[in-house]
């Protein structure tokens, strides 16, 4: 279910495009914020949790997920170069699982690692805040990657839809309508973080069993469906 050649091509495609700059800019911004907060505000567990929850998990992780998830397959489908993968005796689900693996790895490296570092800068992992958000970022990386990879497979407007989901649904809508939060990757990840961090620092609207079930279910369903879509993919630019 993993093809190293597909993986190599995907890594180069994701990291080689101009969009990849966002992969470096966002973590740099997070670290800058962490340094600034620590310098001017000192150590405060609640502030650390707010920064990591409000920027790292709510904004940075989904955005990096969009870039890595859609970037792992979308451009290839758009320009038709995916034909070189499809015209090979390689199972379509293998292509999807490999691309998902790459998207997850990229999202984790560029979101979870900076989250951990920022957490240590903010309060030295006091009350396990850094660890809690790192775990949340890791888990969210998986679900976002799967969702946005599917989006990249089914839509030419994957990046826009992904951004709308990440920013409007998760951030804005989720804060206004409580029902929307049940269907939010961010909330599922937070429910894990809630268990790790000290009492009352992190809150989630979704119970842990529900969150885990939804995380696993959504990831599996999105991956399976993307594999199916790829099997019947119509190449663009036909007469």
């Amino acid at each position: 279910m993993y093809n190293p050649t597909v993986a190599r091509l995907t890594y180069r495609a994701v990291l080689g495009r101009r969009r990849a700059a966002i992969l470096f800019v966002l973590p740099a911004l997070l670290l800058a914020i962490a340094v600034a907060v620590r310098t001017f505000n000192g150590v405060d567990d609640q502030v650390a949790a707010d920064v990591l929850g409000g920027f790292a998990l709510a904004v940075m992780v989904p955005l990096i997920g969009v870039i890595a998830g859609t970037g792992a397959i979308g451009p290839e489908i758009d320009d038709g170069s995916i034909v070189y993968l499809l015209a090979k005796p390689v199972k379509r689900p293998t292509i999807i699982v490999t691309k998902l693996t790459v998207a997850i790895a990229v999202t984790m490296v560029f979101s979870a690692v900076p989250t951990l570092i920022a957490g240590f800068i903010l309060n030295g992992n006091g009350q396990q805040v850094a660890m809690a958000y790192t775990v949340a970022a890791l888990v969210a990386s998986i679900a976002y990657s799967a969702l946005f990879l599917l989006l990249g497979t089914v839509s030419r407007h994957a990046v826009v839809i992904g951004l709308v989901y990440a920013l409007v649904w998760e951030t804005l809508f989720g804060s206004l309508v409580s029902g929307a939060r049940t269907l939010s990757v961010q909330q599922w990840a937070l429910s894990l973080a809630e268990r790790i961090a000290g009492e009352g620092l992190i809150g989630s609207d979704v119970g842990l069993p529900t969150a885990v079930a939804l995380l696993v279910g959504v990831t599996a369903a999105a991956t399976w469906y993307a594999g199916q879509k790829l099997r019947v993919l119509k190449l663009a630019g036909e007469e």
Partner: peptide, 10 residues
């Protein structure tokens, strides 16, 4: 294929 698109970065 007829289309030009390849993995241009390779």
């Amino acid at each position: 294929p007829e289309r030009e698109a390849m993995y241009d970065f390779l």
